[in-house]
Nucleic acid binder design. Structure first.
Lengths: 136, 136
DNA sequence: CTTGACCCTAGACCATAGTCTAGGGTTTAA
DNA sequence: TTAAACCCTAGACTATGGTCTAGGGTCAAG
């Protein structure tokens, strides 16, 4: 019934290093310990690791996952609105990042487009010139 | 003519900490030193910091900026094609990142959309359920 | 001749998400 | 009984881009 860390590791495909790291981060804790101090995990813990992996896959940081897990645990005291709000905040953070990346991409494309790209020496390369320009 | 680090810092709006950090990273080096060991910078160094800032603004990492600066310095031996290739590689890296972010955003939006978001207890919140699901 | 503002080096510290090692103890199977 | 495979803690190390501190030295004004 109870799994040792190596068993949980191979079952979830998360290294024992990482499992212990997640424990230090407060994401997961063993259900108990054996007499000799070995961590013992239950099926619930397997699910919990699954939750962590799913949340990682959709882009949450470990800190955010910790907060999500807290919502999970106290879900009787939290509304769907709370959870949705959490996700929506993340969505707008992602949107912010994407706008930033779009800006960067455009700048890079402008640089690339203006450059002849030929085998002439880069002495007057428009890219290098653009980057050297003082734009206050 | 020659600037001390504090002067360069205020002229470029980059802290003296960061300037020394950039020096350790090989991005910039003072033109010389005073008798007492103070770093002395020339106008070229001001331009160089400008180059670094511009390149940062378009999304290059410090390592990439170091490589760009090398291209800059040896530009007589490099072709426009080399420089353009460098920029184009960065563009496709940015594209990769953007695709990843799009994937994440879609997942998050799917989660959010499925959730009622009401003030009902989150006991059966679809978001928490989706994250708890085992997807092998 | 002292005070304050500046400069120096070397190294610690922050977040993020792990990975790995050293130096032990335990369990299992031959 | 001994060797392999596992487990433990504590802490170092990776990349990235800085920020800050400790503990000094230098320089200009009053």
């Amino acid at each position: 019934m109870m799994l040792k860390i190596g068993e949980l590791a191979s079952k979830t495909d998360v290294s024992h290093h990482t499992l212990r790291f997640y424990e230090r981060q407060g994401l997961i804790a063993p259900a108990g310990r054996s007499d000799s101090g070995y961590r013992l995990y239950s099926d619930l813990d397997v699910d919990r690791v699954g939750f962590i992996l799913s949340a990682k896959k959709v882009g949450f940081t470990l800190l955010e996952i910790q907060q999500l897990l807290e919502l999970e645990i106290t879900k009787d005291d939290n509304s769907c609105g709370d959870v949705k709000c959490f996700v929506d905040k993340k969505i707008s953070a992602v949107n912010q990042r994407m706008l930033e990346m779009k800006r960067i991409k455009k700048s890079l494309q402008a640089l690339s487009k203006a450059c002849c790209g030929g085998s002439v020496p880069a002495t007057q390369c428009t890219i290098l010139e653009a980057l050297s320009e003082q734009k206050n």
